[in-house]
């Protein structure tokens, strides 16, 4: 049994230590919000947070994830109330939606360290995440909007 700290709780499953975190989440733990896109850390669809850092869960084994705090799209909020989720809805970002969990996890990680990113900051943080539907212009707009929402929330 391997025990993982996911979204603030302890979850365990019977799997080999070399199982990629991606498949552990999806197949063993029933959390399918994290997506499989390339298996090689090239597309970003499987992005989760490991100790608040964005990582490609297809390229992290569960053995290496033990003892670290893992956060997935399911753990972002219980009611879509995270500023990034709010902004995503306001701008109506998703098209097919398949990449969006990864995009949102990359965006939340960016905003956690850089509350007012420039376009260049956004490009740099988000270019590991492929969107074949071409939602990039709206993602950019939504990240700026999420930054605004976070600042408004802090100012209150």
């Amino acid at each position: 049994m391997i025990k993982l700290n996911i979204n603030g709780g302890e979850l365990e499953a019977d799997m080999s230590a070399d199982t990629p975190l991606l498949w552990a989440l999806r197949d063993h733990l029933g959390m399918t919000g994290t997506k499989f896109g390339c298996g090689k850390g090239l597309c970003g669809a499987c992005t989760v947070h490991l100790d608040d850092q964005p990582v490609r869960s297809c390229s992290v084994s569960v053995g290496d994830a033990v003892g670290h705090k893992i956060r997935t799209i399911e753990g972002l909020s219980v009611d879509r109330s995270h500023p990034v989720q709010k902004a995503w809805l306001e701008i109506d970002v998703p098209q097919c939606g398949y990449c969006q969990s990864g995009q949102i996890m990359a965006a939340t990680a960016l905003l956690a360290t850089n509350p007012s990113p420039t376009d260049a900051d956004i490009d740099s943080a988000m270019s590991g995440n492929i969107c074949r539907c071409g939602t990039y212009p709206r993602i950019r707009a939504a990240i700026h909007r999420a930054a605004e929402l976070s600042r408004e929330a802090t100012a209150k």
Binding site: I73, R80, Q85, Q100
Partner: peptide
């Protein structure tokens, strides 16, 4: 379909 696509609940074939 946007709400389900921003919280991981949207269900694709996979």
């Amino acid at each position: 379909d946007s709400p389900s696509k921003i919280d991981g609940s949207a269900e694709f074939g996979i």
